[in-house]
Every structure is written in structure tokens, then in C-alpha cells.
Amino acid sequence: MSGELWVALAAELAGNDPVRVVGSGSKVGWCGAVAGREVAVGPSGIVEFEPDDQYVEAWAGTPLKELQAECAARGLALPLPDEDRWGRALAGYPGTVGGLVAMNLPHALAEQCGGPRDWILRVELLTAEGRLVKAGCKAVKNVAGYDVPKLMVGSRGALGVLLKVGLRLWPTRAMPEPDATVATDRPANWIQRTLRTDFDRACEAAGDRLVAADRASCTLWAGLEQGERLPRFPGDWVLCPWLQEPPEAPTADAVRRLKQAADPHGRLNPGVFGWI
């Protein structure tokens, strides 16, 4: 079943039109507007679960909730805060496994347990031409070839369409408690991470617009009026729907070249970064 779905997806990619690749849509609000025909990332389900190796591989369309439930039965988990207890923001806006990797949103265990960049071991993806390509492997340590799985983290489907993702799991009994606070249940539209030395001032500046704060990673979530901004601090980064700003010039330039190499005709999620 899943196999047939990705074959259909590959056929779609073999055409000429721009395509909009989206998982459950839980994080689309954080992206630029994407033109193109929507292609649902249909395949869902766990492909391989090896509790003894703390390894799970799932189709990109697998709901995170489903994956976590399956893993929890064997005392394992992706180390993300529980959404019911900590809210959507601090839990990283959980949707699908593919979305987790493609968006790389912060969460309230990022300082203690890392994020998708630290957990990803293996990917299978469809290139812009619809070819099936794999990278990485199931072993925790691997330096064979360029680290394509890590490059896919945060790439928002613009470099290739994630099909399967292999991730390292944590024992649930070793998972720490977040050092975070929820201020209100209003939705957030501004995420900011600062240096430790600036975090108190950043939270103060947010004032009653603060939605949640993770002291451990120095990340805050705020709910602002459309178009509004909070003060910035040296080295910080911000994620905000109306602030799709390019990174500094050399990175932006390198990213444009990577995009050009992976997707020469700009068909994969055009506009998802706003600035590419």
C-alpha cells in the first residue's frame, strides 16, 4: 500500500509542475506561502522498530503520536515534551515524523536531549526528478559520505521529498523533565532563541505577549499582533510567519546553491522559505 503511494508521488514529481509537499499541516503557519499543486505525503506507518538498537524507521507521513505510542510500549521515545502536559509550542507542534525532521522546530527538551539534527540516522527520499535515494544507515555512528540526513533536517521539503526517516530513540526512564514554563494558552507566532546572557531581557521584552519559555535552551514563544516584532539580540534567531528573513549572506548564498543543485527547476515547495 505504502509502496504504491510513493510510486504515485514519484510519478507526480516526474512531471513539470511545482508541487507542494505537506504532512499533517501542523506547522505550515511557520512557513512562507507555497505555490504548486498539493501532494499529500501519504505513506504512513512504522517500517522498522528495533528496541534493542533504540532505532525506529517510519514513513514520513506517520503521525508522531502513533510513533510515540508504539515506542512507549517498549520503554522508548523520541525525547519530546508531552503535548497534553506542556502544550503544542513546547512540544514542538507535533504532526508527522516527516514534519518533525523537515521543520526542525525547537522544543523544551532540546538543550537536554538535542533535536532532529542529533537523532536522525537515515533517510530515504525522492529527488526533484522523482528518483529514490537513500543516505545514512541504521548504525548510531556513521561517517561514510556527506551527511545528507542532517542536511535534510530543516530543509522543509525544498531539497527532496522525505519518504522514510530513521531515528535514534531515548529510554523513557532516562528522559529529563523540561525546565520550561507556559504563560498562556494563546497561540504563538514568534519563536526566538538567544544566548544565555540575553534570555532574561528577551523574556522581559516579550512581556505579556510571552506564551512559553524554555529556560534550558533559552527559547521563547510569543503571540504578537500581525506584523509586530520583538527586540533582537546578538546571534539570536527568530521564526515568525511575517519575518521570512534570509540567514546571513554566505549561508543564504550556499543554501541557494544547494537548492539549485537538488532542485534545478525550483519545483519542490517553492516559496516555503520566503527568501530562496
Partner: peptide, 14 residues
């Protein structure tokens, strides 16, 4: 950057 976890494509990965 000095602040980890930035969203987006990170060429450092390569």
C-alpha cells in the same frame, strides 16, 4: 551561529 538550533537548511551539516 553561536546560538544553536536555527531553523532552516544548515550547510554546516555537509
Amino acid at each position: 551561529s553561536r546560538v544553536p538550533g536555527a531553523p532552516g537548511i544548515d550547510p554546516c551539516a555537509l
